[in-house]
Design a binder for these strands. Structure first.
Lengths: 223, 223
DNA sequence: ACCGGTGTCAGCCGATCGGCTGATGCGGGA
DNA sequence: TCCCGCATCAGCCGATCGGCTGACACCGGT
């Protein structure tokens, strides 16, 4: 009749063995802070830390953690989304729990599409983080409330899905180039540039190039 | 003839009395991480934590820490720069050590102008953080290497210094508004808007509104 | 075999933009 | 007091943009 639901650490009936965790964040101070913080939660064992996406992928394979805590913004090399994709590509691999600063539509979508099990904001309470790590270890999805809201909102109004070409145009536009220059850069005619721009305006809900650049930068629609 | 300048709390021979520190960061997880991390450095005592600028200002006055560790990006209310300004406004007040993610020109300049004693990046090694806290307590300036470089670079080529009004215009422009709409929003004539825009283009080194928005977003020239 | 999505291109036209010259008023610092 | 930076406004003009209509070609799925 033992209650058995609560997690007593040292007991022999090990339904509560510490969760093996890999931490990936490019900021050394943040990483060290997370390590120190997670160490204070007795039932989590940090088995490794990575400062780049490549390192995270390699360590995930070598250390076989149950959960990878992943920041999406990684300075050098591949970004957190790509790292998440590669880590979750392995069949028996670890679950990836995204812990990041931004709740941008594009980031959330890309992370989930890449196979992330959960998406937590750094603004969350530490207890939520601990709970999320355990939830992720069991494969359960955990989303921060603001993130959950965004996801729901996206269900109703799917986010601007730009085609490859439109992203090319938008990238050039974000350099401040004129139609003629964009045309030359992409080896197409000005007419085509204007056609694409019109569709981009539609999708982003704007009607000027400045507005398009603003939305693009805001919602991080560019690589 | 009592020395009376240094404030050793309890110890008699205490050249290494713990530095009294206040931590301010809007992300609960990061804050908790920093606390856990700093606790591991024996000679630093975290006397309080704040999640908003207002709270930091109030706690700085009440808890009289020697150093305030300040993030510049604070979600709600006043930002880190303003909080730094208010904290350092007090004559005998604590030193402010900025610990943030970005090494943006504008952020650095504004933080230093606001009275920050040091500017560290979260990408720095934790040991650097510990050292910086102690340095800040003694009033010494500490800059992360990339930040130091930027500061030097700015000495040579001062960053685009937009006037208040130009920032107003730029803010409207970043909403994608046309000249007529900007004029109406700011209660001025279109001619004036065009005049300001021309000067903004000059200062930012662009010649289109899309380019101006791109640079503004890139270099974080907006509130 | 048809159709929708995508990418390409053309021409037209009114609205807007960007550069220019020039002018006024105000405030602060030399 | 004079000058400079800042903000305000006017008019002009060529270049560019944004919206429109219409067209062709490729591809993949039904």
């Amino acid at each position: 009749m033992s209650p058995a639901v609560t997690p007593p650490p040292a007991a022999s009936a090990g339904s509560t063995a510490p969760v093996r965790l890999l931490v990936c964040d490019d900021h050394a101070v943040v990483r060290a802070g997370l390590l120190a913080l997670l160490a204070s939660a007795g039932d989590i064992e940090v088995v490794g830390e990575a400062s780049t996406g490549e390192e995270a992928v390699a360590l995930a394979a070598r250390l076989t953690p149950q959960v990878v805590l992943m920041d999406l913004q990684l300075g050098e090399g591949i970004d957190g989304v790509e790292a998440t994709r590669r880590i979750t590509a392995t069949p028996g691999g670890p679950h990836v729990l995204v812990l990041t600063t931004y709740d941008t539509d594009a980031d959330i979508t890309r992370a989930i599409a890449a196979g992330a099990t959960g998406y937590l904001l750094k603004a969350e309470r530490p207890e939520e983080l601990f709970a999320a790590v355990h939830a992720a270890a069991r494969g359960r999805t955990v989303l921060s409330p603001p993130v959950a809201s965004k996801v729901m909102a996206q269900m109703r109004a799917p986010l601007p899905q730009l085609t490859e070409r439109e992203q090319d145009i938008l990238a050039q536009l974000s350099q401040g180039l004129g139609n003629r220059e964009i045309a030359r850069a992409l080896f197409i005619s000005e007419a085509t540039v204007k056609t694409h721009l019109g569709r981009i305006y539609d999708k982003l809900g704007v009607d000027t190039r400045a507005g398009a650049v603003a939305v693009a930068k805001e919602r991080r629609l560019l690589r």
